[in-house]
Design a protein around this nucleic acid. Sequence first.
DNA 1: CTGTTAGCGCGTTCAG
DNA 2: CTGAACGCGCTAACAG
Lengths: 356, 356
Amino acid sequence: MTPPKSIKRSAIPPASAAGRRLPDRRQGVTLADVARLAEVSEITVSRILRNHGPAAPATRDRVLAAVRKVGYVPNRLAGGLASSGSKLVGVIVPSLTNIVFPEVLGGIRAALDGSGFQAVIGVSDYDLAVEEQLVASLLAWRPEAMIITGFQHTAAARAMLDGSGVRIAEIMEIDSTPIDLAVGHSHWQAGFDTGQYLLGRGYRRFGYVGHDWVADHRARLRYDGLVAALADAGLTLLGSSRCPGASSTAAGRDQLANLLESHSTLDVVVFSNDDMATGGVFHCLAAGIVPRSDLALFGFNGLDIGQALPTPLSTMRSNRFETGRTAVEHLLRQRERPAAPAIIDTGYQILPGATA
Amino acid sequence: MTPPKSIKRSAIPPASAAGRRLPDRRQGVTLADVARLAEVSEITVSRILRNHGPAAPATRDRVLAAVRKVGYVPNRLAGGLASSGSKLVGVIVPSLTNIVFPEVLGGIRAALDGSGFQAVIGVSDYDLAVEEQLVASLLAWRPEAMIITGFQHTAAARAMLDGSGVRIAEIMEIDSTPIDLAVGHSHWQAGFDTGQYLLGRGYRRFGYVGHDWVADHRARLRYDGLVAALADAGLTLLGSSRCPGASSTAAGRDQLANLLESHSTLDVVVFSNDDMATGGVFHCLAAGIVPRSDLALFGFNGLDIGQALPTPLSTMRSNRFETGRTAVEHLLRQRERPAAPAIIDTGYQILPGATA
DNA sequence: CTGTTAGCGCGTTCAG
DNA sequence: CTGAACGCGCTAACAG
């Protein structure tokens, strides 16, 4: 037995018998409301709002007027569900307080701009367990692509990413094999090149100042590259000082002071990044050490702050903005995963500066 | 004529006659797949996954095992649509490269943590037209609350926010009447207090260095407060230098150099914020000007970088993290808008530092 | 150029 | 403690 199947909203009700048509709950205005007002069907409104398929200018105007009149805001939950396409890109970065990542996001936003896509950002705090939760949580929004920092993920996170079928970009490094796409540069090589550059400038007595590299795996890779370059020249690091926790100018300043207490004869100190190195410059300024002539300092990233110092920091510029932009461009260019993973090197350049 | 209505997924198919059950499209595993495998109904799976309603430990285990087996990831688009509750909080900030905003987001994330809510972030680049688009775009995700920076919005943006019915927090300032809730501090008062503090320390010959205050309205308010405090003491700014564009250390350094060229007799310079003031300190270091004794410098925000300087910056600390956290806490505490708008002052404190 | 029909995947009734 | 129906708001296919 089939009852007359409750009348659909769009069925013309017995004139005004069905009662007033007010948004009963808060947030109640739907496509149907607009359609009714414009005297067209819902699908016509839908098509016009998405610029999809043809539309007579007249109906178009009527619909747009109706939209404005009732203050209609499309429901993307419904839209995404119906079209199985959320127009979302999930992004997971380890931090926002390290300025490098906002800059990457800048590149991502720039590339997304005008594409109709929206980034949903998750911050893992350099914690792989948190990252795993974020992967699950972002995947639940059925993003059309996912951008995640680095190659270090839990097995579960990797499985979810892989199994999701969506395109995945692993950014900021290229020293491993990606699930799908990697965009960034080689940190090991950057460390190695740093070593070679400084050796070429005549430095021989090397020190190192860094932060927590269990969390920040890429800092560790740069360190390893540096040490390898020194080894090639028959040298080793004479001293190093590392602090737990994230990088910061305060930490860089304190760690350099600490290192110099026990190693006063160094001629160059390499820092894990520009934040730390900037702190190192601050220590020098406070302690009357003249950068380069008394002690050379070298950073990594090419941050604005380092270049604004009284003595611009000698460092490697990484191309963060471009990394974000490139990742999005490639992800959106081809919506299916390619047969084999690809790697894009966005490189880095030496900024000579004045501290080394 | 009604064809036998395509068999519903949940209908038991004629044994294996219906063929293999593979996720036909990519991304195919749904509640129904889990339910079939665990031999329960979809709703049981749904309830167990949400810890909602009772569940026998035995079924529970079977369901969770099935979830893991097939790698099920809930579809929040569908969930949100069905329950009309997205568990999303929209956040709009003007910038991510100004470290203040990542810090606010840190507070927002801290408060959201464990609540099951997720923040969706939009960045307006200090552009009200972009902000308006973001409001529409974020509202389309049917967030359960919205956090937006400042009081300056287009009429359309304000109308959408107001009409959405969701709770709205306008953060970072409290000098106007909010739509619903404001969390932050008074920038005018902060500027005024800065002036009084510096007057109290004996400074009389004031200069000002700032950035684009058409975009950054709060910097303008602080300036106005400062000028008012000077006026109360019968003083005026002797000189000021402002650059277009965003604040940065480089801009602060250059603008201070510029200002001092034409105004060499100043005894104190107030900066629009700590980034600019840090640049000012850099100029002093480069030019051999001793902060405080030769020229006093004062910033705003209390950033880590300023406190790590060889001469810690004299500044006002704003409580960004707490602002973000407090906004979320209040928004989630009460899901309906209160009768009258509320204002929460998260205050600021003078950091004496060593530059003024 | 426009409308009709049939779901998207889930959660909310209400029954058992 | 579990299940069957129904619809959230929208869009993909077809018609016409």
